[in-house]
């Protein structure tokens, strides 16, 4: 009884911190969802774009830039990284996943170059979280408010965008690239722009994370992709993905639920080193579910993706 109570209360005590963290990481999940679901372009760039955003933001904060400027430039850097991945895929006909691996590997060096060292403390530098009204800066409440508000604005804008004429065209490229092209849509522009936008969100997550935790680290992206995918799967299981609205809500809902789950597992005594294994198994299970459900006959269930 006592043990369960201890677990429960240590979990509850962590809820606000975890919530703040998950609202920031929701941007990365968004950055994974957009290429994967909207553009049918499974993309690994986020694993490099997230620390890229962090490193750019860290260096700029250390140089005395305003937190907003730091985020804006991190977004641009992330956008360019995503554009590069898409371009590598389109121009050289390299598989999207391989293009993403190439990009994220190269970004590791670039991130190191940007910071000049593997770790940079920006503790005490002004952050966007200082601007939350009514609450003390530095506490989870301020992070929840700021990250939540930015997330809500992004969510509303994206939901509007994907229903505009241009946004519909971008979705068509993911749904059927040949058809999109035959309907006069420039597949290159849509793909490069879309993957760029997604990586820009991953970089936003990195920049916010650095401002939240007070340091930047080249290794901060390690495993972010699989965490993000797990969060996306959970989000889609909860809110679905049939409409633009639901598909866009999935990353946010998924991130919040997933990181609370992780926090709970850790509070319950799961050894942290096992976390990636557990997450990986979870993602595998979610991806395998459709083919397991169809227990009889060969499973045609395969994610159709762009080669």
């Amino acid at each position: 009884m006592d043990l369960i109570q201890t677990i429960f209360w240590s979990f509850v005590a962590l809820i606000p911190v975890t919530l703040a963290q998950s609202l920031i990481l929701a941007f990365v999940v968004l950055g994974i969802m957009i290429p994967f679901r909207t553009l049918n372009f499974p993309d690994l760039t986020s694993e490099g774009a997230f620390p890229l955003g962090g490193c750019v933001c860290g260096v700029l904060l250390a140089a005395g830039a305003s937190p907003l400027t730091a985020i804006a430039i991190a977004i641009i850097a992330g956008f360019l990284a995503g554009c590069c991945t898409a371009f590598i895929h389109l121009r050289f006909r390299i598989h999207t996943l391989l293009a993403g691996i190439l990009m994220m590997t190269m970004l590791y060096s670039i991130n190191l170059r940007i910071m000049g060292k593997s770790n940079l403390s920006v503790f005490g530098a002004p952050t966007v979280f200082d601007w939350a009204p009514f609450v003390q800066p530095g506490f989870p409440a301020s992070k929840i408010i700021i990250a939540g508000v930015i997330g809500a604005v992004v969510f509303i804008l994206l939901n509007m965008f994907f229903k505009t004429e241009k946004g519909t065209a971008i979705r068509a490229v993911g749904a059927n690239p040949d058809m999109a092209e035959a309907q006069g849509i420039n597949v290159w522009v849509a793909t490069i722009g879309g993957v760029g936008l997604a990586s820009a969100f991953s970089a936003t997550g990195g920049a916010l994370m650095v401002q939240s935790q007070g340091f930047a680290d080249v290794n901060m992206g390690l495993g972010i992709l699989i965490n993000g995918l797990a969060a996306l799967m959970i989000g889609e299981a909860i809110v679905g993905k049939q409409t633009v609205l639901r598909q866009l809500a999935a990353p946010f809902v998924g991130a919040v639920v997933y990181y609370q789950l992780v926090s709970f597992c850790l509070a319950a005594g799961m050894p942290p080193p096992d976390l990636k294994l557990a997450t990986g198994l979870f993602v595998l299970a979610m991806l395998a579910l459709p083919s397991l459900k169809r227990s009889r006959g060969p499973a045609p269930a395969r994610e159709t993706v762009r080669e």
Binding site: M160, F161, K163, T164, E165, K166, G167, T168, A169, R171, A172, A175, M179, A180, Q183, G184, I185
Partner: peptide, 23 residues
């Protein structure tokens, strides 16, 4: 994966410039 109406919209925009207005 898109609706009938969205497909019609894509076709209507085939020869037009796509704007940022609601489709």
């Amino acid at each position: 994966s898109m609706t009938v109406a969205e497909n019609m919209l894509l076709a209507e925009l085939r020869s037009k410039k796509r704007s940022l207005r609601q489709g």
